[in-house]
């Protein structure tokens, strides 16, 4: 069962394709194979209000492929997926489905992908609590383990 998700804010994806190339370099993918690709919806003109600008629809949407394993090897080392790390627009995020779904609710023009059944246990993955109406009524339950920042090596 999928446990983790990529959250992509496509209001800001500029189509730089750093995610595409970072993934290929990380996983040694040859020409003709991809772990993530950027799809264009547009450009096409929505209305005649203006000659350009916001009268045009153009969204670039990175979509993980069947070859995406959410960078399982990097996750095992405690690192973010390489696409998320390198995104020039800082428009990609990674976390548990619950954590990313809560962020999805914060603004429009985002998309959530659960590319694979990666169910590796990651520190902090079970700490996230979805805020509910009941939670507003009383103190939020404390997480069992306070998340610790990773120790810096000398």
């Amino acid at each position: 069962m999928p446990k983790y998700a990529l959250l992509i804010d496509y209001e800001y994806c500029t189509g730089c394709e750093s995610c595409v190339v970072a993934c290929k370099m990380e996983h040694d993918m040859p020409i003709g194979k991809w772990g993530i690709r950027v799809h264009d919806d547009g450009p096409w003109q929505m209305n005649e209000e203006h000659e350009g600008g916001k009268s045009f629809n153009w969204n670039k949407i990175p979509v993980p492929t069947d070859m995406c394993d959410l960078c399982a090897d990097r996750l095992a080392e405690g690192k973010k997926p390489t696409c998320v790390h390198h995104c020039l627009a800082f428009c990609m995020d990674f976390g548990t489905i619950a954590e990313m779904a809560a962020k999805l609710a914060e603004k429009p023009k985002q998309v959530l992908f659960a590319p694979c059944d990666c169910d590796i246990d990651l520190p902090g993955a079970d700490d996230f609590v979805i805020p509910t109406a009941k939670a507003a009524a009383g103190p939020r339950p404390r997480p069992k383990m306070a998340p610790k920042p990773p120790a810096l090596r000398a």
């Binding site: 500029t14 189509g15 203006h50 000659e51 350009g52 600008g53 916001k54 045009f56 629809n57």
Partner: peptide, 9 residues
């Protein structure tokens, strides 16, 4: 692409 995010183009 950047023009499609502009307030005035």
């Amino acid at each position: 692409w950047l023009c499609t995010r502009a307030d005035v183009h």
